[in-house]
Design a protein around this nucleic acid. Structure first.
Lengths: 110, 110
DNA sequence: GATCAATATAGATGAATGCCTATATAGAAA
DNA sequence: TTTCTATATAGGCATTCATCTATATTGATC
């Protein structure tokens, strides 16, 4: 078989699985346009640094460990990166990887 | 909240979940371009009617009930429709719904 | 009408998911 | 160095998913 297509199917399905959960889809939507959905943070810029776990937790109404677990799924799929500042952790979208996934979907199914 | 966005999140995540399984993603890829992946069928046109369950089952190497179950997931997500001819059932992509999902993803995250 | 062929349904099982509470860790501040 | 705060980890539990075997259904054919 075609190794390129196979690798592509694997990573694409990982990304789709990450986004297939309503909470995670909502979270991605929020952090893609953080200034529209969160108020400014003290120790990290919403756009430059990302959104902290606490803000997401409060907004989505799940417990903090559950949110951390969702963020890890997004991170493993390559959709976000995390950066610790003081004792916060800020999550920021990886737009390029999202765009690549959309393009793959289009290649494969479009 | 915005009912439009909420409905959208629900149906989009349903479609993403349907496509997040590697087998289903592969099947969708095949039936989107059926002539590239299957040989002609006796009682149904690959493009006009769709691909029969038996062909998919043989190509993917799972059992027939498992394939039927996958096809039902795709159908529930609105990604395929089925049409019985004689005692075959042909599955055909619903391109418009797929395109809509891609567009929603772009709206929400792009 | 009996048989064959293609698909669907039923039911079981193991693995993965999503959620929680309780606790650990690590940096900041007192 | 004790305490506070933000996040991570551990572990348990219920639900959903992916798969199989066995069987039912339905149309075609003999």
């Amino acid at each position: 078989m075609n190794a390129y297509i196979e690798t592509n199917i694997e990573s694409t399905s990982t990304i789709l699985r990450a986004l297939s959960n309503e909470h995670r889809l909502r979270i991605m939507m929020w952090i893609m346009d953080p200034e529209a959905h969160f108020s400014p943070q003290k120790d990290g810029d919403l756009v430059k640094d990302g959104v902290c776990v606490g803000f997401i937790t409060e907004k989505i109404g799940l417990t903090q460990p559950t949110v951390t677990s969702h963020m890890k799924v997004l991170a493993k799929a390559g959709l976000v990166t995390s950066k610790p500042i003081k004792n916060w952790v800020f999550y920021k979208p990886q737009r390029a990887n999202f765009k690549t996934a959309l393009a793959s979907l289009n290649d494969m199914l479009g």
